[in-house]
């Protein structure tokens, strides 16, 4: 091997690449970025749409309106590990809309109809309240408006939906336009290699 790269290093990179692909599309696209490169990300503990203790705050849509990419490089993602798989998901339904003949809210919340709801596991056809539901964000439709993120936040939901910069869409501006606009200083940069860390969040600020 030349340039001081050993067989072991190369093997390690292949393994890492496989792991990254397994982590989903964003991680997969990170492989195409140089390991030492920095990328922008949303600190969900700072974003006003997802951080705890913000009951009643207006939804912030700056991630949608400020990103230089059409339809924004920021999208909502749902962490299935943390999702309650609720019958009435406040991120899927407009829970203030009139109840329909099924006993469910008559309107959806997402203005782009970007969330898919599917019963999973054992399905009781007679009483749908008995079922668990999977909520999948169809990212190609989502523009990161944050409505579902705010609705899913504790204590109304479980906070499983958050906004994330999708690295396959982001064009890596030197100074992220959202970071300039964000009133909560929630955009930060991290090294591509750090994307492998399971808990990626900026260190607490003084």
């Amino acid at each position: 091997m030349s340039d001081g790269i050993t067989r072991r290093d190369a093997l390690g990179r292949v393994v890492r690449g496989t792991v990254l692909l397994g982590l989903g599309s964003t991680a997969g696209f990170l492989i195409n970025k140089a390991e030492g490169q920095v990328v922008w990300q949303v600190d969900t503990s700072r974003c006003v749409n997802s951080r705890l203790g913000e009951a009643g705050a207006e939804v912030c849509m700056l991630c949608t309106t400020q990103c230089v990419v059409a339809q924004s490089a920021v999208r909502a993602i749902n962490s299935f590990r943390d999702c309650g798989r609720c019958y009435v998901c406040p991120a899927y339904y407009n829970i203030r809309s009139a109840v329909d003949e099924r006993g469910l809210p008559s309107e959806k919340l997402c203005p782009r109809d970007a969330i898919r709801r599917t019963p999973i596991g054992f399905v009781d056809p007679e009483d749908p309240a008995n079922n668990f539901y999977e909520y999948v964000i169809e990212e190609e439709k989502c523009d990161g408006c944050g409505l579902c993120v705010k609705a899913c936040r504790e204590p109304l939901g479980l906070g499983s939906i958050v906004l994330k910069v999708r690295h396959n869409l982001c064009v890596d501006c030197n100074r992220c336009a959202i970071s300039i606009a964000c009133p909560h200083d929630a955009l930060f940069q991290h090294k591509v290699a750090d994307a492998l860390e399971p808990t990626l969040a900026r260190q607490p600020q003084p």
């Binding site: 309650g84 609720c86 019958y87 009435v88 998901c89 406040p90 829970i95 203030r96 809309s97 009139a98 109840v99 006993g103 469910l104 809210p105 109304l156 939901g157």
Partner: peptide, 14 residues
């Protein structure tokens, strides 16, 4: 029953 408006119902996800 679920109802997000009528106080006789139970609102929210749970």
């Amino acid at each position: 029953r679920f109802d997000g408006v009528d106080p006789a119902g139970f609102p929210g996800c749970c």
